[in-house]
């Protein structure tokens, strides 16, 4: 084992295989399991990354003459030595078959839906118009936190949520309402640590007021079923619903200080 680990050829091979596993599986499937927001990497991007890794490995190996010789040695041996005839034969069949299979994967007719890259939380505008009234979003706080009775605000928010939001976002606020499965993209899961705690209340206000039709292009406004709630709800009702969302899920909203820290 140690002999292999100290050999440049096997070191290179391990780097290449490990990189592939990381790009293909760790980023897309392992990270979400341990709670880090992530998504599978498109295959064209993987090909690009793998080419970079391969070039990197070759550059490193050829930078030193002795290492280069040792790196090439097993490859050469497999090509020429009589006692490696079996391995050579297998590789000389397996490699063309692999290439043929890759080529087939490229040209075979595809019945998959075209990949859409959708930004779940696209950048918000600096201001919005609510039924004609201009509202600055930058630095905007939830006005209801400073006025009236929080208990009453939460009761209003809950009433608005259950009447209007439950069909899609669900009683449990988990994005699993009774109509959720009819929509694509699926409704937002407010219990996910990737949503509410990452967003300022003004951001959530923007998303509720303008809904799907108000998304920028990268948010695929054409297929979001989120209504533009300014057509249905009053501003205070929306702010109260936002209070309810954070209260019922137990998440604190992102503050403008945190927001600034990232710029």
């Amino acid at each position: 084992m140690r002999r292999y680990l100290s050999h440049p050829f096997w070191q290179g091979a391990i780097v290449v295989v490990a990189s592939y596993v990381a790009f293909e599986y760790v980023i897309g499937y392992v990270l979400p399991v341990i709670g880090v927001a992530s998504a599978p990497v498109p295959s064209s991007v993987i090909v690009e990354y793998m080419l970079i890794v391969l070039v990197g490995v070759l550059l490193y190996m050829s930078a030193d003459e002795e290492r280069w010789q040792r790196f090439r040695e097993p490859i050469r041996a497999t090509m020429v030595q009589p006692d490696r005839r079996t391995v050579r034969g297998i590789l000389m069949v397996a490699f063309p078959v692999l290439i043929g299979w890759l080529a087939y994967e490229r040209v075979k007719p595809s019945y998959a839906a075209p990949a859409t890259l959708r930004a779940v939380h696209p950048a918000p505008p600096n201001q919005l118009t609510f039924r004609g009234e201009t509202i600055e979003l930058t630095g905007l706080e939830n006005p209801l936190r400073e006025e009236g009775s929080m208990e009453e605000h939460l009761a209003v928010g809950k009433r608005i949520y259950v009447r209007n939001c439950v069909p899609c976002h669900g009683d449990l606020l988990d994005g699993q309402g009774h109509y959720a499965q009819a929509f694509n993209p699926v409704p937002a899961d407010f219990t996910s640590s990737g949503n509410l705690p990452q967003l300022t209340e003004s951001y959530v206000f923007w998303r509720i007021v303008k809904g799907g039709p108000g998304l920028p292009r990268e948010g695929t406004p054409w297929d979001s079923a989120m209504p533009a709630w300014e057509t249905i709800l009053e501003q205070d009702e929306i702010w109260a619903t936002i209070l309810y969302l954070y209260d019922q899920t137990g998440f604190p909203p992102r503050t403008w200080e945190e927001e600034g820290g990232h710029e």
Binding site: P96, V97, I99, G100, Y104, V107, P109
Partner: peptide
């Protein structure tokens, strides 16, 4: 419903067979 897709199958094409074969031959 929201958007889905409909796809009309194209006529069977010879490239599906020829391209991989060619790639295999060249590599071999």
């Amino acid at each position: 419903s929201t958007w889905y897709y409909i796809l009309l199958e194209p006529p069977a094409s010879s490239t599906v067979v020829v391209t991989p074969l060619l790639a295999m031959l060249l590599t071999g």
